[in-house]
Design a protein around this nucleic acid. Structure first.
Lengths: 208, 208
DNA sequence: CGATTAATGAAACTGGAGTTCCGTTATGGG
DNA sequence: CCCATAACGGAACTCCAGTTTCATTAATCG
């Protein structure tokens, strides 16, 4: 009569359970990149991961649930940030990192797929938001340094500046379909740096 | 033997055929907004449209095919553009229009859903790109006017400036989940106007 | 190391998404 | 107005994504 206990995989998370999760998440990433979110098939993922499909359904339940876990895993793998000494240089480094990621066939397709999945389920959306929170928080300090150097006005929302760099690149990826080349990255970085220096990202209120 | 002829609905596009298309596209929009792309069910759409499900499968085939047609229909319904006399004013009007659309529960959900669908099928992606091309082309003249007035340097990519206004709003909608309020719209407009005036969107090459 | 039981996985099962068949409706041309 | 047939729609059918069952394997605790 007691409760059903916790989620499968939480009581004995070591050994096989961990290996299964790794294999399934890897297979899920491959399948998402190759086939897209709409054509995702959990049985196919189980086959790729050399795991019983029952296991995949039991532990993750739905395609969006699996993507949510994949996003949680992706959020943990952080890339080191480079520092160049100027805001424009730092933003450009960030823009080119994002651009290279989205322009890469596998990674670009993967990001499209996880974003598509996030539009279909609140829990997956939350996982996606967390993933970007982590990435943005990693880069925000370079804007703070620019504030300290006097390049950017006090009171600027540092996170918003970082998001402003990525936004046009994601817009191209998803809606315009324009080329995601280095020029696009540099343009995004330059626009964000210029706007930030002019105080366009001051916290709390917009420019008059 | 001879060819199979054209797509169903192309030989006798009037009367019932047109009514069916209208009813199905309306039902598809409702279903996408309410349930999201992943939970889309063509039989359910047929029921809502009071149409045989055979008809929906025959004419549109797949969920992504139906969304592609919906996007073609949406591209034809254009909204009038307001003019304020200044670039910032015009961009702000555009930004608030986009913001209000995305913040609206039904429209916001619908846009998320069509973007999700577009990530899954090349034809649907093309339809989405065309939709945004139409919208951007409608607003680009206000940037040209700013160039003519001397507010923005010659050689600026007018379409890119318009896209720069929308990009941060779509970024919030899809990845950050931050509030889509008027301040967000005004900030996007101000940042784009500032960057455009500084020559960040010059065609062909980025700033040094 | 051995007992307990969480977690896995093969196989059989089920429901509904998508298809096929064919009779009915009504469009567009003459 | 009438005919040929494009397009629709109900019903029966198929097939596979997702579920259930239960035996097997191996993670954790003592």
């Amino acid at each position: 009569m007691g409760s059903d206990g916790a989620e499968p995989g939480s009581v004995r998370p070591g050994g096989r359970t961990a290996r299964v999760r790794t294999a399934v998440l890897r297979a899920a990433g491959d399948a998402l990149a190759e086939r897209g979110f709409a054509h995702l098939d959990l049985a196919d993922i189980a086959r790729r991961a050399e795991v019983g499909k029952t296991t995949v359904y039991r532990r993750w339940g739905t395609a969006t649930g699996l993507v949510a876990d994949l996003l949680a895993d992706m959020a943990e793998q952080s890339l080191p940030r480079t520092e160049t000494g100027s805001l424009l240089g730092d933003l450009r480094a960030n823009a080119r990192l994002v651009q290279r990621t989205l322009a890469d066939p596998r990674q670009g397709a993967l990001f499209k797929a996880v974003i598509a999945a996030a539009t279909c389920e609140a829990k997956t959306a939350e996982a996606l938001h967390h993933f970007y929170d982590v990435r943005v928080t990693e880069w925000a300090p370079c804007v703070q340094q620019a504030i300290d150097r006097g390049e950017v006005p006090e009171g600027t929302d540092t996170h918003e500046v970082i998001r402003a760099v990525s936004a046009p690149l994601y817009y191209r990826l998803l809606t315009s379909g324009g080329p995601l080349d280095e020029d696009a990255a540099d343009q995004a970085a330059a626009a964000a740096a210029t706007a930030a220096a002019a105080g366009a990202y001051l916290r709390g209120k917009e420019l008059g």
